[in-house]
Simulated assay, not measured.
Amino acid sequence: MNRRRFLGIAAAATGLSLLPARLRAEGVPIRTWRGVALGADACLQFAHPDPAEADRLIGICLEEVARLERVFSLYRPDSALSRLNRESALDAPPADLVRLLAEAVGIGRRTDGAFDPTVQPLWQLYAGHFGRSGADPDGPPAVAVRGALGLVDYRSLRVEPGRVAFARRGMAATLNGIAQGYVTDRVAERLKAEGMGDVLVDMGEIRALGHHPAGRPWTVGLKDHTDEGRTVETLEVADRAVATSGGYGTLFDPAGRFTHLFDPASGGCAWEWLAVTVTAPDATTADALSTALSVVPEDRARTILNRFPGVAARFTRRDGSVIALRA
């Protein structure tokens, strides 16, 4: 899946010109790595005086990403998540799978089911429907949607240290609404453990440790979903995470009526908001909440946000107007 990015790093690019005079004089550049992680554009940025050590740190991060992809990827048949979905149960699961599934179930509970990691049967239904030639542009038949919806229920996912399992055959999980944030957090933790205090990590979602080496907060631009060359707002972040969800990221049909954001209550595709951006203390929470808040109306969004201290959200309506809510 290609994820069109709504978030962009607006002012943290490579180059000595961004460094304060002292660091420029000492020849300390900002190191930047760019690539792909879990199907999303990825980036690391930090200042370091030793190129070899900077390369070692980047290597550690890439090893961590590769390790976690072997756990969470839906596109690798050998991943732990793929095996769980095939077999409906997994004994001795990787600790990261247990940790993230438990977190996903917990956020499902705190959002009254607006976030549900078991919506994968809906994805399979819609992708299969629109992948066929001559597909009905009005979407899958209602009876098929009801059948898939009967397999969606985070409460039927059993998560224990030694075993994870679905209560019913045919259930399946996706962590696409939370895994990028989790990977971002794990990479940030690895760099912090190596003594790095000022880092920008973007592994599909953004986590800022400390400040930009120039002494200011890291700067994150929110890009116009219709024109990625235009920034609609700039956020300054330090020791915070930012994540955005929007149905524009993956469209099933040319008209854009059906997207990858599913309402776990109805089985339909969410149309409440054009985009939702969340800032939170960690990227895992920001990622999951941006997904959950995308499928609920404003009154429910307020109720959910009040359960997450330190979290703020920016909602873009379909007419382009914006509202901001804070816990």
Rank of each mutant, 00 (worst) to 15 (best):
Y75Q: 11
A208W: 08
D138G: 08
F258T: 05
R257A: 12
V201R: 06
R163G: 01
R302N: 10
G27D: 13
A167T: 09
G215Y: 10
R207S: 12
A80M: 04
P161F: 10
R158T: 03
A21T: 11
D91R: 14
R155Q: 11
V295F: 08
L7A: 13
A42C: 11
Q124Y: 01
A173I: 06
T184S: 11
L175W: 09
D198I: 00
A327Y: 09
T285P: 01
L23W: 14
V295W: 07
T259K: 13
R56V: 10
A283R: 04
W273M: 06
R155A: 11
P281Q: 10
T234R: 15
P117H: 08
A102G: 13
H212N: 10
T291E: 04
A54P: 03
L274M: 08
T111V: 02
E160P: 03
L62W: 11
R31T: 00
A104S: 12
P140E: 06
D287F: 03
A312Y: 05
A275E: 12
P141C: 02
W33P: 01
L200H: 02
V311Y: 05
Y154K: 02
R317Y: 02
T231I: 14
I60W: 12
Y248F: 12
V71H: 05
D55G: 07
A102Y: 01
W123V: 00
F115A: 00
A312H: 13
D153V: 03
R4I: 12
L293R: 09
D253H: 13
G128P: 01
E64D: 10
G197C: 06
N176C: 06
R317W: 03
G147K: 14
L125W: 03
L191S: 02
G106R: 15
F72P: 02
L100I: 13
A114T: 02
P217S: 05
A270E: 15
L325Q: 06
H225K: 10
P49K: 05
D138H: 09
G39Y: 12
V296G: 05
I60H: 13
R99M: 07
P141N: 03
V98T: 04
G181T: 04
F130S: 07
P117N: 10
W273C: 10
F166S: 04
A241Q: 05
A12N: 12
D55W: 03
I304G: 01
V159C: 08
R56G: 09
A214N: 15
R240T: 11
L222P: 00
M171C: 09
E272K: 14
R76G: 08
R186P: 02
R24S: 04
G204S: 13
Q180G: 09
A188Q: 08
V201K: 05
F262G: 02
D202E: 13
F6C: 09
A11V: 00
A243K: 07
V322D: 04
I107V: 15
V164P: 00
L97T: 00
R307K: 11
S294M: 12
A92N: 15
D239M: 07
R99D: 13
G147M: 10
Q45T: 04
D55L: 09
I30R: 15
E233T: 04
V201S: 02
P93R: 06
